[in-house]
Design a protein around this nucleic acid. Structure first.
Lengths: 241, 241
DNA sequence: CCGGATTTGTACGTATGTATG
DNA sequence: CCATACATACGTACAAATCCG
């Protein structure tokens, strides 16, 4: 682990332990560089991580203000798997493996991803049960060209864990979309939907670090169990085309 | 504007113009530093912005891969106002100013924000009409202690523009939450809801750079008109508490 | 209102480590 | 094993914003 990441973790825990309290300023970058015996640039990288993670806000000429973590830091943003979320929030739940087989990619997904219609994928469907009710349905399609094999045991555990720790592939980035759609027949069969007419659907295409596409995911949530929180920094008026 | 931001914009336009094509590698950091006559650190900062914005993916020992912008770069993420979104997507629409007056903060919001119940705020309600139907209802509450005055003309235009360009305040960060809720009586009165029973609600608390809270916003969307897209980078298994 | 001290922002140059091919 | 490319780290200098006397 690099020096600036260590320092990030150290200051993070100081903030969580209230050694540095919300509303106060952190020691200056020069003071911190003395404390940790590193150059100012290294401190600045650590502070950059704290900034991104929503722990501090910096202001030129003034200093780094510690934010109220309890208030802001519930980012369910970023590339987060269900398993990780569950672990981080101590939610007790159960995963039911509905399906795990190799198929040729469904046409509507091939179109969406702009890949050949005869691409081979693992089709993995998992139902997530909380308090006795199935509230999330995860449908994953993994390219066999990148991931040759997915054991049932791993599918029941965590796909990301399997990919990163067992296969040693590095996940790079994803494009993610959230919309609300009418519930399908499949939703009604596999989930506990009561009288809901709609579900929240998140679709993502996930890529490795070298930009190769390897996974398409559709996660279908019951309306009342869906919540998405993010911490956003302002970067000036939008330039996105 | 700083050097690395200039370079970011320059490379960005080269990517958009396909001078650098998707799937190819950018010139190395050393080559770029020669091209722009700056140090490698400056190039690295520019590449950092490209990375965050989803234009490239970097890999140690290999280089910086140009991503397919047309495919990934629709991030409606970050602190983006309706007006900015509309402009960036060339959506023709109309804003109806329903209300703009000073009130004491509603109790449920005071509780949510943990501020005193006698705080004074501007209450601004705007209905967003697209193709003749009101599909979004924006409810903004701005602290009078920070924003003394909000002219109707500015409310009809863009609040962020007013705050940043006219008042010269710097918006820092926000905590944002998305959930689906049953439609209220007010929703039904002000929006074109057909037979919808629910709406998507985004709530945010917006802060200035020095961390002072100055705005609470609730944006209520008709289900079929809501879509949220984000570009996410993997940062390793979640550490969020 | 001004000047000086402090603090963050930007930039440069150098050196070394690590991954890729 | 080597060349190349990105990652980390150090040190220096100056600019810009803030604060205070």
């Amino acid at each position: 682990m690099s020096r600036f990441q260590d320092i990030f973790l150290d200051i993070e825990s100081d903030i969580l332990n209230q050694q540095y309290k919300a509303g106060e300023l952190l020691p200056s970058e020069n003071q911190l560089s003395k404390k940790y015996n590193v150059s100012r640039e290294t401190i600045r990288k650590a502070l950059g991580l704290l900034l991104e993670s929503g722990y501090i806000s910096k202001k030129q000429g003034k200093g780094s203000i510690v934010l109220d973590v309890k208030r802001f830091n519930f980012p369910i943003s970023g590339l987060t798997s269900y398993k990780e979320l569950q672990d981080s929030q101590n939610i007790s739940s159960e995963t039911i493996l509905v399906k795990n087989e190799i198929i040729t990619i469904p046409e509507h997904i091939a179109d969406f991803l702009k890949v050949s219609t005869d691409t081979e994928v693992h089709c993995i469907i998992r139902a997530r049960k909380v308090d006795g009710e199935v509230v999330i349905l995860d449908k994953d399609y993994l390219f066999t060209s990148v991931i040759p094999d997915v054991p049932d045991s791993e599918a029941r555990h965590s796909l990301y864990h399997y990919i990163e720790n067992k296969l040693n592939l590095i996940i790079g980035f994803a494009r993610k979309e959230f919309i609300v759609e009418p519930a399908t027949q499949e939703d009604r069969e596999l989930m506990t939907l009561h009288n809901d007419t709609h579900v929240v659907v998140t679709r993502s295409e996930v890529h490795l670090e070298d930009a190769t596409l390897f996974q398409y995911t559709e996660s279908r949530h019951r309306l009342d169990k869906f919540r998405f929180v993010e911490f956003a920094r302002r970067r000036g008026p939008v330039n996105y085309t």
